[in-house]
Amino acid sequence: MNAFRLAGDITHLISILVLLLKIYATKSCSGISLKTQELYAVVFLARYLDLFTDFISVYNSVMKVVFILSSVAIVWCMRRHRAVKRSYDKELDTFRHYYLVGACFVFALLVHEKFTFQEVFWAFSIYLEAVAIIPQLVLLQRSGNVDNLTGQYVFFLGAYRALYILNWIYRYFTEAKFSRWIACISGLVQTALYADFFYYYFLSWKNNAKLNLPA
């Protein structure tokens, strides 16, 4: 494992911790899209079907369990916890995410590495992860101003994607047989979705101002 990938995994973990911290400390999930969180839970459940069939490393297995449990816990909190549920911006979070699930699944049936149960679900999870942030970005755009922790949450998620691209470039040059075009192309699409957010994030950071997304 190279430093870029480790840093990518760590920033991914930090983004989840920031989100949990926000929900726990403020007992509020305002500014957070339940739809994006549901999509992430589906992403991890579909991708880590290999948890019991393929052992890669202790690190790998532990991270998989952490990602599954934390994503399910966040969805549970936003749906069931009384105070948290009340703060949910339901009327702003109207993106039809079921279409994304359907489209990604059909796409996975068409484009995959092997036509097996696990491989189709793996490809599905890669495609779905690429677009899962869309409901969150739409919600932020609609609400206009973004609170600190929510901004940091999205920032760390974006950083994780950017670091994974550096990891692939590194692996491409250092590994003999490195071909994973499904993950790489989806990863590029996913990172591109953050470009707009990053632009305004750095602008607010440079001007030391609150993060505002123009409508």
């Binding site: 995994d9 790998n60 991270m63 990602f67 793996w122 994974y164 047989k177």
Partner: peptide, 10 residues
């Protein structure tokens, strides 16, 4: 030699 696992990333 064993092939490296295709899905070794998270």
């Amino acid at each position: 030699k064993e092939q490296p696992h295709a899905h070794d990333e998270l």
